[in-house]
Design a protein around this nucleic acid. Structure first.
Lengths: 195, 195, 195, 195
DNA sequence: TGATAATCGAGACGGTACGTCCTGTCTTTCA
DNA sequence: TGAAAGACAGGACGTACCGTCTCGATTATCA
């Protein structure tokens, strides 16, 4: 078990202070106005302590997301058996959060561009991770609630993509869009479907 | 009629040189490694000439997009009467472009986070502008090819959002996803639709 | 006589406005915080109008001195026949002016470093020009009031130099130093002189 | 004892490189064509390292003078008991130096206008510091070699001032002026002195 | 009296340097 | 020996001026 490791061990206090400071600064200033020096100073920590454990600012942000320091809530679709209701209810909650934390989310998309891991963590936090949203869809697929040939990945991309697109392009976000959007996705845009 | 404007007039040569240099540098280095100083030097222009006409790097990029300096091609859905075919064909072209210019597009999303106008111009260039994609959909709606109650905006967001989501989250992009995705959107994910 | 000069003639109004603006700005800001653009703007004049007639900022200052725009008073030693009294009275006035316009004079020394002509004009304005102070001394020399072998130039340099040295090195300047200094210069520092 | 100072210590190598580069550039280009960026580049140093320790270009020059980087020689009057001979010999050396380094000294007067400390250091370097030239004069005063009522400060100002005046106003400087000037100062300009 | 030529205010232009901020690395001291 | 403090080389920022140029309007002379 012991592999001859000597000397002081990584300070949990410092690590926590860094994540807290980062989250707080991002909320106050937005991602791109946050600097490593600002984090170090806010956290009462040396810059080197940050660089020792993370390769970049965006990596710290990724860990903030992982720890729930930035987005404490979780958004998981339920499984009541009613796919449309479950998805609508989930998307309503997600859209509600996004609309009230518009600038935070906008910031995080910026971080995601720099660092793919941030994107993944963000994806997960909003309940759209492979293990959560996709799982719910796969359950539905298994229950025959999805057409044959429908790609779960495409389905997820359509839903999450709508969310991202609204954030990026400044379109208004209202949680009561949720039902209509899920209806569109599940039942299609055309009036008649070939059986 | 004359509104008393005196003094030398804006140099079109300088303006063009700046847009050209910016486009070239973004393609070579990626948006976030491009600097105002780099643009000025590449364009053979003083920094002040940039700051005189644009407030920020991202604003220059927005104008590059507007002028077609970054994305010369345009992607407009046709109107053959067959909505599914038109959209599939268009999305296929767009996905093809995106997949072969992955890093450019990734860059531009970064610029779009900084500057909403970049997002709008990017949106438009990909054929998803209100005047183009949405127009095609409205035509379809008028022709009864869309269900009542379907929001054209949501439809567009779902399609473009998918594109953005793939770019951001590193998912593979292949132009032969187009048909399946349009089918999903138009006909829905569920096997039976309440009539 | 006429050498075929065609076109508009130099605007005296512009010339005067420039000299006035320059003098005013130097008094308010000090020579080195005055800029050509500042002068042009204050004078309501185009930059080119300054560059057309003067090669540099310091040349404008030299003309300001020449016109008495910066130092309206003149300081000329009288000739009552009493050399010591004349010089004391003159130096007292000069030191009085210098002590009450300390920062202006300091500024002008800066201009003199850049442009020798400014030095000459300054020199003249304080009454130490070859045509004035040196002339008074030459009169005294002719009247046998100066020793044989005494160089008038050295005498002038000693007096004016003291003034400059005090300005440059921040020593206090009081007009009642004048009598003692002239006494020193005229009668020497040593108690006994070889006859 | 320990006053709790943590962190890396000031780099003597950087400090020396900056002073050396500054001196070299001033000699090559003259004070006003030297820039902070030029110094930094010549010294292989970041600009911030200059701004961290000096508030301005002229402050760096003051330190150059203090370290003897610009004027390595020192000019101190001897004390052989013969005041006139000591001062003549000293002034001859000083004038000799000034005449062979005319443009350097001209430059330094420009720096002295910007920064009083440069003036003081320059003063000192030429042997005219309170602790040196004035001391020699005070010794002479104590030995009864100066008249009662003669101000040592005025004496020093007359001598150094002559030097400055010649530099500023472009008068020729020749080291054989020294004897005559000291004779003038010590024995006065007038042929007869009231006993 | 119209063409020519010079001036004027205005202001854009290519540049240079400013002083500040931040990056990522290295060094010193403390606990 | 890990962590704070902080100095370091470097690079970009956005601003201020430089000295030149171009623009349209306004004089003045000459043909």
């Amino acid at each position: 078990m012991s592999e001859g490791r000597r000397g002081a061990v990584r300070s949990e206090a410092a690590r926590t202070a860094i994540l807290t400071a980062t989250s707080s600064l991002i909320e106050r200033l937005g991602y791109d106005r946050v600097t490593i020096e600002g984090i170090a100073s806010e956290a009462g920590v040396g810059k080197q302590t940050i660089y020792r454990w993370w390769p970049s600012k965006s990596a710290v942000v990724a860990e903030c997301l992982l720890e729930g320091a930035l987005i404490p809530e979780t958004f998981e679709p339920q499984d009541t058996g009613d796919l449309a209701a479950d998805l609508s209810e989930w998307l309503e909650r997600a859209l509600g959060f996004v609309s009230t934390h518009h600038s935070l989310l906008h910031s995080l998309i910026g971080a995601a561009v720099e660092n793919e891991e941030v994107g993944q963590r963000l994806y997960e936090r909003l309940g759209a991770s492979p293990e959560v949203l996709a799982e719910r869809l796969r359950v539905a697929q298994a229950a025959g609630q999805l057409r044959a040939g429908v790609s779960v990945e495409q389905l997820v991309d359509a839903i999450v993509g709508m969310l991202i697109a609204r954030l990026l392009f400044g379109a208004p976000i209202r949680s009561d869009d949720a039902h209509g959007f899920i209806d569109l996705i599940l039942h299609g845009a055309t009036p008649n479907r070939p059986q």
